[in-house]
């Protein structure tokens, strides 16, 4: 589904990613772990196509299509979803409005029929019920006055509504207490299926207790230094990132 080859990227002229290779198949959950400044968030932003994150070499194929030149909204339409470390507030725009705009924009991109108000609300109610989210959250402005945990739950709701092929969770666990962490993980697990994939980017192992990965990769100095099964996360928890602190030979 996702095939990253020899990916180099820079931000404001500074080289951050230095040859990433990563393949994620349908139904898989991968975790990328690494110390601060290793390029984890840069990878997430590059995948989402954020301006100022420039790919200088290599390729990103998604479902067999080179997406490295696509706009962020086009990548979203292709099925890439980024759960933000710090979800943004949009005053005055209700969650319902935002979700409807987003979903219909994506459907339009894919040449699907847009949902009308009734169809949309019906679908939305189904999702909130499934995730145990109260309907009053839908009437509130996007993330405005939300607690850290509520913001993350809102992200999960967005994910459920947009139903992406690939969800990238960019340090979505930062600043969450254990209860909120569990809620987020439960939400993600509910959305796991044979047809989609999840890329969890995290500094800490604890999220991976709840979202159990098929593969774990260690990112350091802009490269994937090591890959392994879920036990690699535990090893990192124990030993820290000291082994990966040096520049590559």
């Amino acid at each position: 589904m996702l095939e990253i080859k020899n990916l180099h990227a820079e931000v404001e002229g500074k080289s951050i990613l230095k040859g990433i290779n990563l393949t994620i198949n349908k139904g898989e959950v991968h975790a990328i772990m690494g110390p601060n400044g290793s390029g984890k968030s840069t990878l997430a932003n590059v995948l989402a196509g954020r301006d100022d994150y420039e790919v200088t070499e290599g390729s990103i194929f998604f479902d067999g299509k080179d997406i490295s030149e696509l706009e962020p909204e086009e990548r979203a339409g292709e099925g890439i979803f980024l759960a933000f470390q710090y979800p943004v507030e949009i005053p005055g725009v209700t969650n319902t409005t935002f979700l409807k705009e987003a979903l219909n924009a994506q459907r339009k991109y894919r040449g699907e029929e847009e949902l009308d108000g009734m169809e949309f609300v019906k679908m939305l109610r189904g999702k909130t019920k499934e995730l145990g989210i109260k309907d009053d959250m839908l009437k509130r402005a996007v993330n405005v006055g939300f607690s850290g945990g509520e913001k993350k739950r809102n992200d999960i709701l967005q994910m459920a509504v947009l139903n992406p092929k690939l969800a990238v969770l960019d340090e979505t666990d930062s600043g969450l207490d254990i209860d909120a962490l569990r809620i987020v993980a439960d939400g993600v697990n509910k959305l796991r299926s044979e047809n989609n994939a999840i890329l969890v980017i995290t500094h800490y192992q604890r999220l991976l207790n709840y979202i159990v990965p098929d593969q774990v990769h260690v990112l350091a100095h802009g490269e994937i230094r090591r890959s392994g099964g879920k036990e690699l996360a535990l090893e990192l928890e124990e030993k820290g990132y000291a082994d990966y602190s040096g520049e590559a030979a």
């Binding site: 301006d51 979203a76 979803f81 933000f84 943004v88 935002f98 924009a105 402005a141």
Partner: peptide
Amino acid sequence: QLFYCRQRGISEEDAVGLVVNGFCR
């Protein structure tokens, strides 16, 4: 804000419209 909207599939022009409409609500 714009990137957040775009990442959810909303074009930049529409994102501006959305944010401004929210501001004027």
